[in-house]
Amino acid sequence: MGGDVLRYRRADVAGGTYFFTVNLADRKADLLTRHIDILREVMQQVKQAHPFVIEAMVVLPEHLHAIWRLPHDDVDFPMRWSLIKAGFSRRLAKTETIRASRLAKRERGIWQRRYWEHCIRDESDFERHVDYIHYNPVKHGYVRRAIDWPFSTFHKYVERGVLTADWGDSMVNIEAGGER
Rank of each mutant, 00 (worst) to 15 (best):
Q44H: 11
V75Y: 07
I67E: 04
A66W: 05
W68Q: 01
H50R: 14
Q45S: 10
H72N: 12
R69I: 09
H65W: 02
Q48Y: 03
E62R: 04
P71T: 07
V46G: 09
W81Y: 06
R69C: 08
P78W: 10
M57C: 11
L70V: 08
L60T: 01
P71Y: 04
Q44S: 13
D74T: 10
W81R: 06
A49S: 14
V46L: 10
V75S: 14
L83M: 15
I67G: 04
Q44R: 14
L70P: 04
H72E: 15
V53A: 13
D76Y: 07
Q45I: 00
M79R: 15
F52G: 10
I54V: 15
M79L: 15
Q48N: 12
W81A: 06
H65E: 05
V75P: 01
I84Y: 10
R69L: 11
L60H: 03
R80L: 12
P78S: 10
H72Q: 14
V59F: 02
A49R: 14
L70F: 05
A49F: 01
P78Q: 11
Q48D: 14
M57D: 00
F77S: 05
I54Q: 12
M79Q: 14
M79V: 09
P61K: 07
D76N: 15
L60W: 02
W68S: 02
Q45R: 14
V46N: 08
M79Y: 14
E62G: 03
M57Y: 00
D73G: 08
S82W: 12
W68A: 01
I67Y: 04
W68M: 03
F52Q: 11
A49H: 09
R69E: 11
P61G: 07
I67K: 05
I54T: 15
I67P: 04
P78G: 09
K47Y: 04
H65S: 05
L64K: 04
V59T: 09
F77Y: 15
P51C: 09
P51R: 07
A56M: 07
E55R: 15
L64M: 15
V75A: 14
P51A: 10
H50C: 07
P51Y: 09
F77G: 05
Q45L: 11
L70K: 05
W68R: 01
M57T: 00
L70I: 06
I84C: 11
P71H: 05
F52P: 08
P61M: 09
M79W: 13
P78T: 08
E55G: 06
H72F: 10
W68P: 02
V58T: 13
E55M: 09
V58S: 04
V75G: 01
Q48P: 00
R69P: 00
D73I: 01
F77Q: 07
W81T: 07
P78V: 09
V53T: 15
I84E: 10
Q44I: 00
W68F: 06
V53S: 13
L83I: 07
F52V: 10
P71D: 09
D74L: 05
H72W: 06
L64P: 03
R80D: 12
V59A: 02
V58C: 08
